[in-house]
Design a protein around this nucleic acid. Structure first.
Lengths: 253, 253
DNA sequence: CAGTATAAATCAATCGATTGATTAATACTG
DNA sequence: CAGTATTAATCAATCGATTGATTTATACTG
C-alpha cells in the first residue's frame, strides 16, 4: 500500500469537470428526458433526480436552509449518493447551475441564433419584443420555472463559482444577443453604454416581477398571478420596450 | 413545577410587539445613532449593535447561513443576549425588519409627505424623477445601504411575518405615493393597472441594478460600481421614466 | 453460453462539528 | 437590595461528510 495517497480515493464521476455536454459534438439527448437507447448509465437516474430536487429546494428555501438529507429524501435517493455523484453539497450546487444554464441555453439559444433580423430595425424590434415576452411567460408563468428562476436569482447576489458559470454560459450570450437586437432597432451602437444598460433595464423589469411577485400581487389585489395578471404585466413591459425604442431612436442624421 | 407552562418563561422585552417607534408621535431620535439624552436604557447598546450586525450579516450571507455566534461576535455581545433581547434568532430577524422599515420610512417618508405637486403634471414628474434618482443613489451608492437592501431583498422572496411588516410599513406607502406622482404626471388614474404596474416596472429597474450589480458590472467591463458608473445607470433610468410618461400621457380630451 | 472478475452505484450507520437554545451564576445600576 | 443585563458553560438536535459493506451492471475468459 503506497503512502502518497494524494488523490482522495477513486475519483467519482464528474466532480471536477462539467457533467453535461461532455465534449463538443456530444449526443444532445443526454440532458433531455430519458435516453433509453445508448448512453443511459444506471446512475443517471439518481443524478437527475438529485439535481431536480435540489433546484426546487434551493429555489424555494435557499441553499443554506436546505439540508442534504432533505434533498436525498425528495429525490428518493440515499444521502451518500450526493457525495458520490457530486463530491458534496457544493458540487451539487454547481451541477444545478450547469443544469439550469444548459436548459435555458437549449431553449433560448436556438431562437436567438436562428433569428436573423438582417438590417431591418422593425424586425429587430419585434424580435426583441418576442424574446422578452417569452422570458416573462417563462419566469412568471410555469411553476417549474419559478424554482429555476429562484435558484438563479439566489445565486446572483453572492459571487462565486456558480455565478461565474451562469454568467459565462447564459447571461453573457443572451445579453449580447439582445443588445444586437436593441441596437439595430434603435440605430444605436449595440455595445454602447446606452444599449447595454438599457437592455439590462428591460430584462431587469421582468426579473423584478418574479422576485417581487408577492409584493406586486398584494399591492395589485391579486390573489394569484395567473394568465390574466401576466398579460397585464406583459402589456406594460411591451409598452416600455416600445417607449425605449421610440425615445432612443437615432435620427437618421 | 407546574405543568401548564404555556407562556415560555418570563417574556423578555420586545419579542411580540414593535420595538422601535413604539407610539405614534415617538421621538425620532431613537432609531438614529446614539440617544444620549433621555430614553437610553442600558441594554439598548447591545440591542442596537446586534441589530446592526445582524442586518449586515443577513444581507451579506443570508439569514440561514449566518449563525447566532457570528452575530454576537460581530456585535461584541454574548450569545445569550440574542435570546434575551429578541427571544431568539427569528425575533432578531423581525427586529431587523422593523429597524430597516423605520429607517427607510424616516428618510423617504417626509420627502413624500411634504412634497405636494398640486395639480402640476410637470412638477409631479420631476418629483417622481428625483425620488427614483434618490433610490438609485441609496441602493447603488452607499456601502451601508447595500446590506439593508440585500436584507430586504432576501426577505422579499419568501413569504412570512417579515415580508408582511416590510410591506405594510414601507412598500405600500411608498408605492402608493409614487403612483400618485406618476398618475398626475401622465394624466392617468393613479390606481389604474397601467400606473400601478408601471410604477413597479420603474422601481423594479432600480432594484434589479442592485441585485444584479455583479453581472452588470462584469458585462459592462466595470471593476467597481462608483459614482461614474452609477451616473451612467441613472441616466438610462431617467430616460426610461421620461419615455414612460411620454408614451402613456393621456391626450387632453 | 457459463462462470468469474471488475467496476459502478446504492445502502445503513456513524463521525466530528456546529447549530439555536437554555441554564445558572455573576456584574452592573439606581 | 432589587431589577436589569451580561457572562460562561452546557444542552439536545441537526448539519455535511465519510465509512465499510452490499447490490447491481458490465467486461472478460474459456
Amino acid at each position: 500500500m503506497p503512502s502518497s495517497n494524494d488523490t482522495p480515493k477513486e475519483e467519482p464521476p464528474g466532480i471536477s469537470s462539467r457533467d453535461q455536454a461532455p465534449s463538443g459534438a456530444a449526443p444532445s439527448a443526454q440532458a433531455a428526458g430519458r435516453g433509453s437507447t445508448d448512453p443511459a448509465r444506471p446512475g443517471d437516474d439518481t443524478r437527475l433526480a438529485l439535481i431536480t430536487a435540489a433546484i426546487g429546494l434551493f429555489g424555494k428555501k435557499g441553499f443554506d436552509a436546505t439540508s442534504t438529507r432533505e434533498i436525498a429524501s425528495a429525490a428518493n435517493a440515499n444521502l451518500a449518493s450526493i457525495a458520490y455523484h457530486f463530491g458534496g453539497k457544493d458540487g451539487l450546487r454547481l451541477a444545478c447551475a450547469d443544469s439550469v444554464a444548459g436548459r435555458i441555453q437549449a431553449v433560448v439559444g436556438p431562437v436567438l441564433r436562428d433569428f436573423d433580423p438582417g438590417d431591418d430595425p422593425a424586425l429587430a424590434q419585434s424580435g426583441m419584443e418576442s424574446v422578452v415576452m417569452s422570458m416573462a411567460d417563462f419566469l412568471l408563468g410555469r411553476a417549474e420555472a419559478r424554482d429555476i428562476a429562484a435558484f438563479v436569482l439566489s445565486e446572483m447576489t453572492k459571487p462565486g463559482v456558480v455565478l461565474d458559470r451562469i454568467y459565462e454560459d447564459f447571461f453573457k450570450t443572451v445579453h449580447a444577443a439582445l443588445c444586437r437586437l436593441l441596437g439595430l432597432a434603435t440605430g444605436q451602437d449595440p455595445e454602447s453604454d446606452l444599449i447595454r444598460i438599457g437592455t439590462f433595464s428591460i430584462v431587469g423589469q421582468v426579473v423584478y416581477f418574479r422576485i417581487g411577485h408577492a409584493i406586486v400581487a398584494r399591492r395589485m389585489g391579486w390573489e394569484t398571478v395567473g394568465p390574466v395578471e401576466i398579460d397585464a404585466i406583459k402589456s406594460v413591459l411591451l409598452g416600455n420596450i416600445r417607449a425605449f425604442v421610440t425615445a432612443n431612436r437615432k435620427t437618421s442624421k
